[in-house]
Design a protein around this nucleic acid. Structure first.
Length: 952
RNA sequence: GCCGGAGUGGCGGAAUGGCAGACGCGCUGGAUUCAAAAUCCAGUAGCCGCAAGGCUGUGUGGGUUCAAGUCCCACCUCCGGUACCA
């Protein structure tokens, strides 16, 4: 009784593929095969201790189908897999247990590999890598040194070697140390003070994701923000190119927009406001005319950035961030106490806290004034935390009439509001705006603006900027929301920085640095006795012994950098290493890189839409500028798979005494707890599907239809207990069923709920395919007697060719769900046929091969009589071609509409002319009756589709 | 608030402006069976009707068109992201 038994056939075929290296990729694409090169890439996983989640195989199955399909069409396919293996969980495990994170990481990688192989993915496993491999992170460190050795030439918009950096005379005059310092200040990798999350109670620095509402995630201890010397990467230099590069990419428009918004380019003007007093304003102005704007503002001005230079005449006050360097200088004695108190309060708030809550504006007057350069008016300077120190110049001119935030602030503190842009005449509330009682942020005709009155604000933007520029008072400027990338972590389990800090005779750092010589890479992690935090805010590598920590080169003593790189580092370039994973002399052989890059298809979760994809594009562009790679962008086509939710759950609500409350009446209080309209707490109860029925557009209790029940699929989570484990699915249904179900659920990019009965459904399909071909009453796997060597009849042939066509087209467009539906139709049709021609059976097995490869191999062998040496395996078989001629039908059925409603059907020869189609439509008995006595106003024939008669 | 995405049977979903609901789940009936499982066959949007057939129907309201799930305008709901970037 050879029933379809995936538990037996799947491991057997996996072993066959592995033994025969069926999916090994050649070093270079093979043009002899006639196809294209295809680089099909998955976002590699973090190998967590929980193992694979059903969300992983969704994208992996999609890319596997694409890869297998491409191979069968003769393409050279590079389809690798690896592991993003540095990460916090392994380090936390190490702190708890003392086990080296490498041991746990390797165990997890082994488990992930087992699970991935169990699903039959056609990866070239010889190319597998982990970011934690020393042979891999050696090159991560090497790339860091490239960043360190590169400065950004803004004129050429190009990253160039630091040796080519022009040194200004006044710098070179001050000697070598000054030159080195100048170079350091221009590198793409540089050091700066940045705030870290220091938790004194835990004695460790925490990552942002380990801090929740200002408390540590573990133990809920207070977390302080303290400045620490950090490595930064100058990604902002590439902001413009990162925006421009998006245009050429085949990515979903939504993702491109997300990246563009994240980079957040805005253009406007920088304007200097004089803070030296009204008496000397005129003198200052004429002096500035002779000496145009310098990059660093002189001490007698407050420089602001604005996107609305057209509203300069409406600036009625100014605001500087609490951290602005001029706060002390600008604070009058009488205000000092208030300003200091305010500043101190602001310093305790994290960026997050500042923006959370009711967002009521706070601020305090400094006691001093600046002079508006366009009209000479003195205006007050305030300190307020709604202005961020890290954006623009950290100071703004406030135009309350035309900026919502300024308006709120001005209203709160009673500052003057002057409208300078006239809203369109038909705008409701126009008079309120002109009276300064409402805010208008649009463009319009400029008023109250001296010489500019009457012009359109969009033109004024330009002319006023030009004039400021001519007068040396301002200049056009561009700003980005994107900040430089904080690149160091105070962690053990990450790549060490290949940087040495020079020490003087006393053992103190001189400030000079040198890269670890290339031939000494990798810098390995030191052996530590334990992984417990040492209780100081410095990195844990400070615990390393002196042999690791100190290095002497050419008689100079150095201390190693003890920060480590963030998890993002390894994932920034792994796609390059797959091309040449064992190269010991280069990160990738340029010849191979040129042959395989760019990635043709990249599939992964949308949660990486911004950071990972932006960071790796940035690294890639630097490598491109420095000649290591040949393409300006790494990922040609990007697809984000949707999230898979848990099974749909029905939830009802009850009060304290167990009475049902309709879901419609359940509210949430300020803390997010469920309450009834009277404010009493409500508890949620899971309701069985059988006790629920649909009423209207919602579900309600069968026993009491007035009680509404919530019906929803939730995100899978351990705490909710709705996580589906792929091991269990494979055990109960087989890997082919899991693969097929994940693709059949719906479009790849959609969010969709899991359903175990749905898995049973596709398993049923595979069972039917099996029985269509195999004689399930015989003792061995032999062909069903219905499978015959005679060719298809006309209808069977049409079905076969139609299926080839639809499956080919749907697979090509990654519409896997409909491709599977087509194969189901084929199977339903041929199962009903008394005889099933072998040619059709060979076709369906071949079409199924990328989707359900194990059963396809097994059935292929059955069709071939088990002679694998003669017939090979189906995974490497040529994809079938369809014959258009076989699709043509001699007669077709056409629906006949009257006034757009289907009223009948006619059968006509395929080649019938429009006139005779209309004639036979009118002759149809039913149609004739309906049009009798009416006039046909118009008749439309859509060839092959329908006929529509418009009658009166 | 703002920015995305989505609203189609009991459920997941399908549909180049051209027969709405392919395919699958579930459900109902039948065949097979001593019985069950498995399998096979038929049916399955709602309403009216014995039937033939008719009417209504793709979140809501308008519009364009011979024809709208699909295009345009306004709105509602849900999901995801984001948070004062001057």
């Amino acid at each position: 009784m050879p029933r379809y038994n995936p538990a037996e056939i799947e491991p057997r075929w996996q072993a066959y593929w592995e033994r025969n290296k069926t999916f090994a990729t050649s070093e270079l694409p093979e043009p002899s095969r006639g196809g294209k090169k295809r680089y099909v890439l998955d976002m590699f996983p973090y190998p967590s201790g929980d193992g694979l989640h059903v969300g992983h195989p969704e994208g992996y199955t999609a890319t596997d189908i694409v890869s297998r399909f491409a191979r069968m069409r003769g393409d050279s396919v590079l389809h690798p897999m690896g592991f993003d293996a540095f990460g916090l969980p392994a380090e936390e495990h190490a702190i708890k247990t003392g086990e080296h994170p490498r041991i746990q990481t390797e165990r997890n990688i082994e488990n992930f590999t087992r699970q991935l192989k169990m699903l039959g993915f056609s990866y070239d496993w010889d190319r597998s890598l982990a970011t934690t491999d020393e042979a891999y992170f050696r090159w991560t460190q090497a790339i860091f040194l490239v960043l360190y050795d590169t400065w950004f030439d803004h004129d050429q918009q190009l990253g160039r070697p630091i040796a080519e950096l022009p040194i200004p005379n006044e710098v070179s005059m001050r000697g070598e140390a000054a030159v080195a310092a100048y170079q350091d200040s221009m590198r793409l990798a540089y050091q700066d003070d940045a705030l870290v999350n220091w938790c004194p109670e835990l004695g460790t620095v925490l990552a942002n994701e380990e801090v929740v509402d200002g408390l540590s995630e573990r133990g809920s201890h207070p977390v302080q923000r303290i400045p620490l010397r950090q490595w930064m990467l100058r990604i902002t230099a590439y902001a413009e190119r990162l925006i421009d590069g998006l245009e050429s990419l085949d990515w979903a428009p939504g993702i491109k927009k997300l990246q563009t918004d994240w980079i957040g380019r805005s253009s406007g003007a920088e304007v200097d406001f004089y803070i030296g007093g009204e008496d000397s304003f005129a003198a200052w102005k004429s002096l500035r005319q002779a000496n145009p704007l310098d990059d660093t503002p002189p001490a007698d001005v407050l420089r602001v950035y604005t996107t609305r230079p057209d509203t300069l005449f409406g600036a009625t006050y100014m605001v500087i961030a609490p951290e602005h360097p001029l706060v002390d200088q600008l604070t009058a004695e009488s205000q000092a106490a208030d300003v200091n108190a305010y500043r101190e309060k602001a310093s305790f708030k994290s960026d997050r806290e500042r923006t959370e809550g009711d967002r009521a504006k706070t601020g305090v007057f400094t006691g001093s004034h600046a002079i508006n350069p366009v009209n000479g008016e003195p205006i007050p300077i305030w300190v307020a935390d709604y202005v961020l120190a890290s954006y623009g110049t950290g100071a703004i001119m406030a135009v309350p009439a035309h900026d919502q935030r300024d308006f709120e602030f001005a209203t709160q503190f009673g500052l003057p509001i002057v409208a300078v842009v006239e809203p369109p005449a038909d705008l409701p509330g126009r008079d309120e705006v002109l009276a300064g009682r409402e805010c208008f942020v649009g463009s319009g005709r400029v008023i109250n603006s001296g010489p500019f009155n009457g012009q359109e604000s969009d033109t004024v933007k330009q002319t006023i900027t030009d004039q400021l520029s001519n007068d040396g008072l301002g200049r056009a400027a561009v700003n980005y929301k994107l900040r430089d990338w904080l690149f160091s972590r105070q962690r053990f389990w990450g790549e060490p920085f290949p940087i040495l800090h020079e020490l003087d005779a006393q053992g103190n750092p001189t400030g000079a640095k040198r890269p670890v010589p290339a031939e000494q890479l990798p810098v390995r992690l030191p052996e530590l006795a334990d992984f417990k935090p040492h209780g100081r805010p410095e990195p844990p590598l400070e615990k390393a012994d002196d042999a690791w920590l100190y290095v002497t080169i050419d008689g100079v003593r150095y201390k190693r950098e003890t920060n480590t790189m963030p998890q993002w580092a390894g994932s920034c370039w792994y796609y390059l290493r797959y091309i040449d994973p064992h190269n010991e002399t280069a990160l990738v052989d340029p010849r191979k890189e040129k042959a395989w890059m760019p990635v043709d298809l990249y599939v992964g979760g949308a949660e990486h839409a911004v950071l990972h994809l932006l960071y790796s594009r940035f690294w890639h562009k630097v490598l491109y500028d420095r000649g290591f790679v040949s393409t300006a962008e790494p990922f040609g086509k990007l697809v984000n798979q949707g999230m898979i939710l848990g099974e749909v759950e029905f939830t009802g609500f009850q009060d304290q005494s167990g009475n049902w409350i309709s879901a419609r009446d359940v509210l949430r209080d300020v803390d997010g707890n469920r309450i009834d309209p009277a404010g009493n707490p409500v508890s949620s109860v899971t309701v069985d599907e059988a006790d629920v029925e649909k009423s209207g557009d919602a579900f309600s209790l069968k026993s009491d239809p007035a009680v509404r029940i919530d019906s929803r699929a939730h995100k899978m989570s351990k705490s909710r207990g709705n996580v589906v484990n792929p091991d269990v699915v494979v055990r109960d249904f087989g890997a082919d069923s899991l693969r097929l179900y994940e693709m059949f659920m719906g479009p790849l990019e959609a969010t969709k709920p899991w359903s175990m009965t749905g898995v049973g459904g596709v398993r049923g399909f595979l069972d039917r395919v099996w029985r269509m071909i195999v004689d399930d009453r015989a003792d061995d796997v032999v062909l069903s007697p219905a499978v015959v060597d005679t060719p298809c009849d006309e209808e069977q042939s049409r079905m076969m060719h139609l299926t080839i066509r639809r499956v080919t087209e749907d697979t090509d467009s990654m519409s896997f769900n409909t491709a599977i539906a087509r194969m189901m139709e084929f199977t339903n049709y041929f199962t009903r046929c008394e005889t099933r021609p072998r040619e059709a059976m060979e076709v369906i097995v071949t079409l199924l091969a990328p989707y359900a490869p194990h059963i396809a191999e097994e059935l292929w062998q059955c069709l071939c009589g088990g002679d694998i040496t003669a017939h090979g395996c189906v995974s490497l078989r040529a994809w079938p071609q369809w014959d258009e001629a076989a699709l043509v039908q001699s007669t077709i059925e056409l629906p006949v509409q009257i006034n757009g409603k289907v009223r009948g059907k006619i059968t006509v020869a395929a080649e019938t002319s429009e006139a005779s189609v209309i004639a036979s439509a009118c002759q149809d008995e039913r149609i004739a009756g309906l049009i009798e006595g009416k006039r046909i106003v118009k008749s439309i024939v859509v060839p092959g589709r329908l006929v529509n008669l418009v009658i009166k």
